[in-house]
Design a protein around this nucleic acid. Structure first.
Lengths: 117, 117
DNA sequence: CCGTTACTTTCCCTTTTAATTAATTAAAGA
DNA sequence: TCTTTAATTAATTAAAAGGGAAAGTAACGG
């Protein structure tokens, strides 16, 4: 019982959790590329690469467009932005000193601890 | 074969890919909490919750601090920021009109366009 | 048509992940 | 010390992820 935003976030983050998929995404961001072009840099098989790209597509991070017998992939920003927007709600943890403040508040049992990790 | 940054990104994104872990992180961000407190809102067992928290900890998103027999968890921003920094390299895909431009260029069946950056 | 190129799908296998119950450690408190 | 509370570890199991080989589909080139 999860809402749709939650579901989309899960798929986007799961896609980004794989280094091959992140690298493929980086390549697509440089400009449209075919499945073969995106598979080439890695030692994995073409079917494996194709599956990674399908994963990225169902997460909404890329879109496929068939031209003749080639399938061109293009970066799509919407879901990526959605994930970043979700993440930015934690931005205060490194823009403010609240991280350090929390650290201080938690050391109250031992009294005067002045150290950070 | 993978560098450490890549490895850390994989762990952070894998952590964020789970809705329970995202919810736990949201709760921790509201203020420190014990393992039991973080487990309470969900129908999962305490060991299951404890493992989710260990997952978040090894991704560097939270830190544990033992007080008596309680283990308090607190939000840690560094890895979170690192992931957001990595993501922000794609920001141009929604801040510029390049997404729409790419869309336009791709709907033109003349095929190739030169790379814009 | 036929063969080749560009993918995708299917099947199968191995590894990882996630969940549960039961056992264990560790700190309080009566 | 004996019991309760807090959390982790262990053992087991089920499901999902990721990869390869091989078959299937679809477009192009002769």
């Amino acid at each position: 019982m999860v809402n749709h935003l939650d579901d989309r976030l899960s798929r986007v983050f799961a896609s980004l959790a794989d280094p091959t998929r992140r690298a493929m995404l980086a390549q697509v961001a440089l400009g449209d590329a075919s499945v073969s072009e995106l598979a080439a840099p890695y030692k994995i098989s073409l079917p494996a690469a194709s599956k990674h790209l399908s994963h990225l597509e169902s997460a909404g991070l890329i879109a496929k467009h068939k031209i003749g017998r080639e399938v061109r992939c293009r970066f799509v920003g919407v879901r990526f932005k959605e994930a970043m927007d979700w993440m930015s709600r934690y931005e205060r943890f490194w823009t403010d000193q609240l991280d350090a403040l929390g650290d201080y508040l938690n050391s109250d049992d031992t009294g005067d601890q002045e150290d950070a990790e």
